[in-house]
């Protein structure tokens, strides 16, 4: 059995670029909030899940608790003046081991997550990348064989972008940086893993995410080992 690797989900931000007056994790894609999809479908087998909340925290917490009661809530009261980097720092500062980080506005294919966590089992660092698609990407420069991320760039388009998902060593989210990718820079070069995701930073992203969610939802739901165990026990 794999050890309980903490999973940190950043869901504190206002999502101003999306302009929906709703925390992005609560945006519904094909009828279900992104956060519900993360907690119920993608992370069903993860036992140590930490959700960083700020903007409209009560609603984000309520959404999480409708799915499961074991999520650890991390408060980011200064969400208006801080970035995702600060949220991850708040959640990671009391953790002594490598952790997964996920941007709370990221729609992930549950099967892709299973492959990612399995590959990450023996690694401290694994960077999730996806074919470039968003309008405001953090692009990843890759090694010649495509196996490693060697640098991040916001100005020179590349074949792939960072997808907001990674496994990272502790103590990486140094307050001297503004952005998460700047923090990860210290761990580069690092292995890359392509996984299918959709982010919802803007309205244009949302249309892509809708199509992505319909594709995911058309596949019969994976039965998680936890759900299977509960079914056996019943």
């Amino acid at each position: 059995m794999l050890a309980d690797v903490p999973v940190l989900i950043a869901a504190a931000g206002i999502g101003s670029r999306l302009g929906m007056n709703l925390p992005k994790a609560l945006v519904e894609v094909n009828g279900r909030p992104i956060l519900e999809r993360l907690l119920a479908d993608v992370l069903a087998d993860e036992r140590d899940v930490r959700l960083i909340v700020g903007y409209r925290a009560d609603e984000v917490i309520a959404c999480a608790r409708r799915v499961r009661d074991d999520v650890i809530i991390v408060r980011n009261p200064s969400f208006r003046d801080t970035s995702v980097r600060h949220s991850f720092w708040l959640a990671a500062r009391h953790i002594q081991q490598p952790s997964f980080v996920i941007d709370g506005d990221t729609l992930i294919d549950p099967r892709a997550w299973q492959a990612f966590r399995k590959r990450a089992a023996t690694m401290d660092t694994l960077i999730g990348i996806t074919p470039s698609q968003t309008t405001d990407a953090v692009f990843t420069r890759l090694s010649d064989d495509g196996s490693h991320v060697t640098a991040f760039t916001r100005t020179e388009p590349q074949s792939h972008e960072w997808c907001g998902v990674a496994k990272l060593p502790p103590r990486l989210f140094d307050p001297k940086h503004d952005y998460v990718f700047q923090c990860i820079d210290a761990a580069l070069p690092a292995p890359a893993h392509v996984l299918e995701v959709a982010e919802v930073d803007t309205q244009a992203d949302l249309a892509l995410a809708e199509a992505f969610a319909r594709r995911i939802d058309a596949v019969p739901r994976l039965v998680s080992s936890r759900a299977a165990a509960m079914a056996l026990a019943a």
């Binding site: 309980d4 917490i61 408060r75 953790i95």
Partner: peptide, 22 residues
Amino acid sequence: AEEAAHYIVYNPRSLCSLMSQF
């Protein structure tokens, strides 16, 4: 109490898994 807290947990196992990392 929530507003004074860094963490909010709703489950004893989660509480102990959180505290065991401190």
